[in-house]
């Protein structure tokens, strides 16, 4: 059964259609990269898919482009928020006042996986852009589930780190739908590449079979 099945669908904000008449089908287990110039509709598509999957009751994690972190809280608490629905209110309040051992024990390994462990009790507002992004990633990891959606999840991280993060995404989630800007990373870590341009899906092909020139045409004027 398809996870996502869009046929001749139009997606957009109130007055403006960002993507018109698109067809998109995603099967469980696929790793897809969305490529395109900024403004081509990647974010809109990711947000739309997130809403749709959540509404369908799927366990989805999201790494939004703006991170949507709570700056005054620590990295630990921001990550913990990934599982806020699975804890009792009282427990969560206690954990806010004093981080509980069990939760720290669960979150610490996730942070060390993406080299953020030393900052665990730093408040997010004091972090660099890359650290903030990794906090958002850790939150998605902690949340878990079958599917991960990422909107430029590694845009602020250097290449070596990015590779480790994407590797971790592969191993943690069955299905991944990622908007990326780095073509090489997309080709290395995803199986299928979807290119967006001019309100349309213009490329939809397996990563292996795709030519560099095709991709470059996405970014041409």
């Amino acid at each position: 059964m398809s996870l996502i099945s869009l046929t001749r669908e139009t997606i957009g904000w109130k007055a403006r259609d960002v993507l018109v008449d698109i067809d998109l089908h995603v099967e469980p287990g696929e790793r897809i990269a969305f490529l395109g110039r900024s403004g081509s509709g990647k974010s809109t598509l990711i947000t739309h898919l997130y809403r749709r999957l959540t509404a369908a009751g799927k366990a989805v994690s999201l790494i939004p482009q703006d991170h949507a972190l709570v700056p005054p809280l620590s990295v630990f608490h921001n990550v913990y928020m990934g599982q806020l629905d699975r804890r009792s209110t009282f427990y969560s309040i206690a954990n806010l006042i004093k981080p509980l051992k069990k939760e720290v024990g669960d979150i610490r390994p996730i942070l060390s996986e993406i080299s953020l462990e030393p900052e665990i009790f730093q408040s997010v507002e004091k972090l660099s852009g890359g650290q903030k992004q990794r906090t958002a990633i850790a939150r998605a990891f902690f949340r878990g589930g079958e599917i991960i959606l990422g909107d430029e999840p590694v845009s602020a991280i250097d290449e070596k780190q990015s590779a480790r993060v994407l590797e971790a995404i592969r191993s943690r989630f069955q299905t991944a739908l990622l908007a990326l800007h780095n073509v090489d990373l997309a080709r290395t870590y995803c199986d299928r590449i979807i290119g967006l341009k001019g309100n349309k899906i213009v490329i939809d092909a397996p990563a292996k079979s795709i030519e560099r020139a095709d991709i470059d045409s996405l970014y041409a004027a």
């Binding site: 949507a68 972190l69 629905d85 209110t89 969560s92």
Partner: peptide, 17 residues
């Protein structure tokens, strides 16, 4: 951040976190 929280998060926790 609130909108991103898991859908079934309780109102009180949502509020304070």
């Amino acid at each position: 951040p609130d909108e991103l929280l898991p859908p079934n998060t309780g109102a009180v926790v949502r509020f304070i976190y």
